[in-house]
Amino acid sequence: MNRVVNVARMQLINKWTFLGIPAIIMVSAFLITLAIWAMIPASGETFYSGASQAVMWYFMALGIQSLTLTFPFSQAMSVSRRTFYIGTVGLFATVALVISVLYYLLGLVEVATNGWGFNGQLYALDWIANEHAVVQILFYFIAMVALFMIGFWFATIYKRWQATGMLLTWIAIAVVLIGLLGLTSWQGWWPLVGQWFVAQTPLSVSAWAALFCAVLAGGSYLTLRRATP
């Protein structure tokens, strides 16, 4: 257990990676968005911005780096793969949870200030802003974890099977997707699919994403167990 905590502490030795850079991305995305809104003449319509996603994409890159560089280093620190995995994912989940709560609180501020005075929507997106607080936080949280896991898992694949493995994985994913699309068209399922998508709520999306994360987490752990530095 102690070593798991130490893995998290090791990841935090360089404060910038897990804390500084995400903070900068979040603050600058916010300020740039406000600047853009300030420059566009108000038309009475609501401004939308996807800038709050920016930090999530950074987490995907972080997932990749955790594996390609921090994992080999953790091996030199005589840390087992399991300990490294739990410590790293645990730290990331904690950071993601904090940011999710922060997003929820910023959403409250956004609504209270009439969209930062510009009638803008940056955090309290229409689609989820009316949901229960827990659902909102859960939604952000799962989205971030999913991106981190994607980065982490792809990096594990790359680590073990190099470029060939990457290529085969992408081909496999493409084949499965095309197959599903073909099957849907062939069976005339599109209306059903449309209905299904419309029926989704933030909670159900979170649930699906959580399932996806669990699969990725399991997959990346099993791949990591056989990875060599």
Binding site: I13, N14, T17, Q65, L69, P72, F73, A76, S78, P229
Partner: peptide, 12 residues
Amino acid sequence: FIRESQKYPDDF
């Protein structure tokens, strides 16, 4: 065990 070609985190 520090490898001859040991990798370190990029920003370390």
